[in-house]
Write a protein that binds this DNA or RNA. Structure first.
Lengths: 257, 257
DNA sequence: ACCCACTGTCTCAGATCCGAGACACAAGCG
DNA sequence: CGCTTGTGTCTCGGATCTGAGACAGTGGGT
């Protein structure tokens, strides 16, 4: 297969810029990607010409451009799953009065595609576009629990693949399997403070026609506000929303994710 | 300046895919971009390798991949303006109980960066990522009204630059200028059914430290539900939200958009 | 005002890529 | 089952690019 270094390099520049919290100087890009300065300026000129990169002359820095934003939205728009989920999630959030999320599994991570905020509540760390280790999240646990054991083993071949945060989350594969068994027993997944201290989530997986988890629906709430009974109610609501989306996607061709 | 056809072509493929409502066959890409089939397969392989494109073998089609999505989110995340606006817009929506939007001017279009949905209300056509002709929208009119007349003339050199929809929106430059004068007189912009029949919006521009419009805040409501007095109240609320964001961005370096 | 480090532009030849077209495989239709 | 159309892979040489390094300009520090 022939190579296309210019294309590969241009995409690498975009990915690097996407990893930055703010626009950066061209020299930073050259250093990080180990590319000649002339090559970087050349690539930036092409990316700028197509709108993917914006040059900030006053700051002498480069950041992502509007074309990058539209690309991201276009991905979202191409997902029939997202449109179905948007409506169902809006209803769930209105009914439960808690923030709701819709996420997909991507490797060992969860990627949040939709966040619906309930009135009077702030957005959380699980904003759209955020990626978190699946075992730390209710959504991730819900999806992993619906996978065959071999697939889970493939994703997490050793304890090295596990990430802990706020001293939370499974530390061994045995703990992970135990968590997943509990999810299957309870019928829903939950996490307490693993993602944001003081907040908990409940989640259910959205299954396709062959029972494969394609996404998850979650509700997030302040731990202190919701007792065990209320939590079960929220879990049931999330479960019904996930089931509704599952029914609606059956009969549709499998989408990318 | 040297050229980088492979980089340019790869970006063209991404843009084409972003314009599609669903994944497409490779032949469609080759035809649309007038590229050799081997070149297209080659570019798709590179884009796929970097995660920007996903191949759907069962459908024999190609669509955008997760890296495209993350790119779009990364753009959003790099905008300090967006984070400030997110909080202010959430409060505005909670207080007004109507859907709110946050948009920027991009050429002669408005580009929606944030949508905050009020409980019990459906998302509208002005979803995140959507781009609409500025003169048709309250947000667009608010920003255009805050621009110097020469800049408006540069953006709209002739009536050819004007777009009508649902038989709405200014049809001549004179009408446009008249609309903008009304916005300046009233202190807020509004549209009735230009974007979505049965819905109206009010909007105010967010101004930077030199008085340049960098964004707009809008509230959208069903026309039948809101009388003239209530509309003024919503306009005032949107105006205060925009002013609050304006105050918060002063003292910060100008961001990209 | 001067100096230094950095930004941004430009050239051109050795190195490397791009794409025409052949080939194998797959899907759909009669 | 056979045929047609479309998908996807692969080769290689004429055409073209990549990037070292020179140069000019800019901004910040002293």
């Amino acid at each position: 297969m022939a190579n296309a270094p210019a294309a590969t390099q241009a995409l690498a520049v975009l990915k690097l810029l996407a990893e930055q919290a703010a626009p950066v100087p061209a020299a930073t890009i050259a250093r990080a990607l180990e590319l000649p300065r002339s090559t970087v300026y050349h690539l930036l000129a092409v990316l700028q010409g197509e709108g993917f990169v914006a040059h900030l002359p006053e700051e002498r820095r480069y950041g992502l451009g509007v074309a990058a934003f539209e690309l991201g939205f276009a991905y979202s728009r191409q997902q029939p799953l997202r449109w179905i989920a948007q409506v169902v999630l809006a209803r769930l959030v209105d009914a439960s009065t808690h923030n709701g999320h819709f996420a997909v599994l991507h490797g060992t991570d969860v990627l949040y595609l939709i966040e619906e905020r309930a009135p009077g509540r702030a957005s959380l760390v699980t904003d759209v576009g955020v990626r978190l280790p699946a075992p730390l999240t209710a959504s991730g646990l819900a999806m992993l629990a619906a996978l065959p054991a071999q697939q889970v083993a493939a994703l997490f071949p050793s304890r090295r693949a596990l990430v802990r945060r706020h001293d939370a989350g499974p530390g061994t594969l045995t703990e992970l399997r135990r968590s997943l068994a509990a999810v299957r027993r309870d019928g829903y997944a939950h996490e307490d403070g693993s993602v944001t201290p003081g907040f908990a989530s409940v989640a259910s997986a959205v299954l396709d026609h062959v029972g494969h988890p394609v996404a998850a629906v979650a509700l997030t709430f302040p731990t202190a506000e919701v007792d065990a009974e209320a939590r079960s109610t929220l879990a049931a609501q999330a479960g019904r929303a996930a089931a509704r989306i599952s029914r609606q996607i059956r009969g549709r061709p499998a989408g990318a994710a």
